[in-house]
Nucleic acid binder design. Sequence first.
DNA 1: CCTACCGATCGGTAGG
DNA 2: CCTACCGATCGGTAGG
Lengths: 223, 223
Amino acid sequence: MDDGTGIRTNSGRRSPPSGPSPRTRPRGDQARARLLAAALQSFVANGFHGTGTRDIAEAAGMSPAAVYVHYSSKEELLFALSLAGHQEALDLVTGADEPHREPAQRLWSVVNAFCEWHAANHVNARLVQYELGSLTPEHAEVIAGVRRQISGTVRAILAEGVQAGVFQIRDLNLMVVALMSLSIDIARWYRSDGEWTPATIGRHHADIALSMVGLIDSAPENS
Amino acid sequence: MDDGTGIRTNSGRRSPPSGPSPRTRPRGDQARARLLAAALQSFVANGFHGTGTRDIAEAAGMSPAAVYVHYSSKEELLFALSLAGHQEALDLVTGADEPHREPAQRLWSVVNAFCEWHAANHVNARLVQYELGSLTPEHAEVIAGVRRQISGTVRAILAEGVQAGVFQIRDLNLMVVALMSLSIDIARWYRSDGEWTPATIGRHHADIALSMVGLIDSAPENS
DNA sequence: CCTACCGATCGGTAGG
DNA sequence: CCTACCGATCGGTAGG
């Protein structure tokens, strides 16, 4: 029923250690992917409680009962989506950070990547940021762990910048949440038909992040 | 039990033009207030779709049908709460702004007030910021108007600061949303048992807002 | 403001 | 992966 922390949950099934040429993906994977895509759209559009399992099944082109062939409950679908989204965000932040560079450059890169992700993937991001309340306590705790890793990365960069004397920060933890707010809230207001591209927002907000930690903006790249 | 954070909203009705001595409030007002308080708590805790009209009625100490004596639908309750919350936020921002002062002081006051409100009234604020999707299109448009007034106030201050040459802003509209994000996102993460008071957050974030528009922080008030 | 009730829909399961 | 169905609960109303 629940694999605890496993992403995607393939529910322990599939991938025999050395099965005979798994060239074609197990047929179920495709169905699961369709269910996840359908659930994501509907959860974001109507909320977890506003989405019926029949809505999901229909959007995935299956019968109402087919959902339960692949996921043991509606919440299990939410958890799979939430975990995958959080993992993606964490990987992105981790990948954007280059520990050998200067704190200012590290901060810029991480904020740039995080903001750009929230804009470009605002549908995923909305689920990630605003549907946590419908997870079971156990699943919520798993997600909380991933979230702590993300904010921990930001905190480490800030701490290093303070240590090096290049950042001026009054309250480190409060600065972490302020920087996270700048990024996360993009998921709430971003519209893909708006006046900015994800890349523009990423650069702009990363510049702003540097000014927030006391660095004068010395590189006016755009006119 | 708990009126949450004092909503009140006498919901437009009541007060006959010259009724005979309305010393005692119409009895219905008290019932409406209880329903609003109950609905607020439940909408925030479980979402609009996750809340049943029976949950609201029970928390207000009434029968399931009594809800419809005072509000014509569940959405009408949400709208009343959303409008009251938005009005309160607008009034607060308008009240905090002192147009005769310098742009920097105006910005500081407004961000300080807006942030403090989102922390102190985070229950109201969560409904205000995250339950808009369940409003009817007509009601959503009314709310959007109030929201435009709020962001318009911030925009006007930024424009004046740029005009006066004291703010350095690359993209005015993007700076508006960045400042709003800083405030609004507080509703998402704030916990009343956390390490900061609403006043602390307000001051800290207002200081940050000034640094975001290019002002050096020259008043280290706390050690 | 209540009891009693409406049709619709919910999440999930039986059995194949 | 489907048809058929379970009991529970939904928003809202009739009638008083």
